Simulated assay, not measured.
Amino acid sequence: MTSLPPLLPASAIPLDHPGRAFVTGRTPSFACRADQRFSYTLQIPSGYRDDGPPMPLLVLMHGTRRRTDAPLDHLTGFAEENGWAVLAPLFPAGIGDPDDLHNYKFIDYAGTRFDHVLFAILDDVAERWNIDVARFALHGFSGGGQFAHRFLFLHPSRLSAVSIGAPGRVTLPDPSVGWWRGVGDLPGRFGVDWAPELVARVPTQLVIGSDDDGSAELAIVESDGNGSTRHDRINALARALDDLGGKPFVDVVPGVAHEGLKVLPAVRAFLAGLPR
């Protein structure tokens, strides 16, 4: 296995050194050491310290358009008020297929395990910053919501909470149905066991705008068999998680269409209400 180049930890940069500005506040976009096709940016709040208890982390998974700056801007206040770091990975379009927009949402495609890419990014974060990456909160909207709930099914022990925003296609926690419509053959495909009791323990928010129908755009993609609108599909996922004993919180934001930035206040409220 090829060794990775070392990172300069934030703790090695004196507080009065100009370089400190690049590892606090809004960081530059860093390439992932393990696979430089992928990158990440963080929002590090002013309360960050190099020593003491590690800072909690929110991972913010982008949607199909790969926009990360605006959501980070909207969550800067949350980071400051609540003392969380916020990480925004970037999985560019066209990985493994120059025309592809969607494959990260399904975790595994053409030899790329997007969950493993996220783990590699988290390893980089842990080496540079005093941030808790062992268990973290995860929010994704639309395409990011697809990634988020599938990541929950594969790696529930890594999540302190998950917020799933308006996914266009959903995977149900049904081990009798193959991936991606169900969670059949996780050991063979992903090398992980299906652990419904762990999935049920993760605090889960399902969030969608009241006016987010999506039937026209969903009509042109492969159906997941769970209805023709985003509300149909998120409600099917909610019922299935409830059947596991998970008691997900369904948050319908009034007057909002398919607008990820406009559901972020509800996401912030969900995260701020978690036990500390």
Rank of each mutant, 00 (worst) to 15 (best):
P6F: 05
L7T: 03
A10I: 02
S11W: 08
A12R: 14
F22P: 00
G25H: 12
F30L: 13
A34W: 08
D35Q: 07
D35E: 09
F38H: 06
Y40I: 01
D50G: 00
D50Q: 06
D50Y: 02
D50R: 03
A70S: 15
L72T: 10
D73Q: 15
G83C: 13
V86T: 07
L87S: 01
L101Q: 12
L101I: 08
N103T: 14
F106R: 07
T112S: 09
E127Q: 13
V133Y: 10
A134I: 13
A137Q: 03
G145C: 01
F147W: 01
F147A: 02
F151T: 03
L152C: 03
L154E: 04
H155L: 09
R158W: 03
L159Y: 07
A161D: 02
I164Q: 00
I164P: 00
P173W: 12
G178V: 12
W179D: 10
W179R: 08
W180H: 15
R181Q: 12
G188W: 09
V192H: 09
W194C: 05
W194D: 05
W194P: 05
V199N: 04
L206R: 06
L206G: 06
G209W: 03
D211A: 15
D212S: 12
A216M: 15
E217F: 08
V221M: 12
S223F: 12
S228N: 14
N235W: 12
G245M: 04
G246A: 15
K247R: 14
V250P: 06
G255Q: 14
V256A: 05
V256M: 05
V267Y: 02
A269Y: 11
R276F: 04
